[in-house]
Computed example of a mutant assay.
Amino acid sequence: MEPPGSISCSLAAATESDPSRRNGSPPSPLFINEGKFGISDGGPEIIVEDVRWRAFVPRAEAIVWRACTAACRRTEAPAPETVVLSSDRVVKLLNARHRGRNKPTNVLTFEPPEGFPGGEIILALETVRREAEAAHRPVADHLAHLVVHGVLHLDGHDHHGAGEAVRMEMEEARVLSTIGVPNPWKPRT
């Protein structure tokens, strides 16, 4: 795996020719064939690409690990290969390149190459912070929610239709309850 600072520089070449897609998620831009196809230690590699995450979410890596573990246990999904805590700038670049949307989003998921478990989840700090503040929720809780959301996407869940969205929201709430994070879909009073 390349050093965290080089993530945005290597994206174009990483998997341009990889046609594997599931649920409309593009193939992983970070998956590099170095013989590391599974998660030998039972969880994702967590890369804090933007160090500002640590200022807003103390123990961010532990929160990511816990949310990922809970989602994988509940759904029996394989753990993502990598979770990257990044910035709006990097996520905007990825969103434009792989989804044709020239704007940042809170979380992106990328499928692994066909036949391999895992995938990548990439989160944008500024967007995650804005959404947490707007919802009057701790940034740490929103981070946990979005990691669970990403794992569910990698497991084949989606939210394009109303029924799919409700099922996915219910599953997110169930997973989050196992780690003490309040239901993000329930209005706070």
Rank of each mutant, 00 (worst) to 15 (best):
S8Y: 13
P187S: 12
A140N: 00
A144R: 09
A77F: 11
C68P: 03
A162R: 15
S86I: 13
G118R: 06
E172L: 13
V64T: 11
M1W: 13
T75K: 01
E34A: 14
P113E: 08
F37Y: 15
T105Q: 04
G163K: 05
V181Y: 07
S25R: 13
H145G: 06
A77W: 11
A165W: 00
M1I: 09
V148H: 09
P78H: 14
A77S: 10
E34C: 14
A135N: 04
G163Q: 08
A70W: 10
S28P: 07
P26K: 05
H159T: 05
A144E: 07
L30F: 15
A71F: 09
G42N: 13
G156V: 06
A173Y: 10
A70C: 08
E61H: 00
G156I: 11
G38Y: 12
G156L: 07
G38C: 12
S25K: 08
F31Q: 02
L11M: 14
E111Y: 02
P113Q: 11
L94R: 03
P78I: 13
R22P: 00
H160M: 04
V48A: 04
P117I: 09
E111C: 08
H159C: 10
V139L: 10
E133V: 10
E133L: 12
H149W: 14
V181C: 00
N106E: 13
K92I: 06
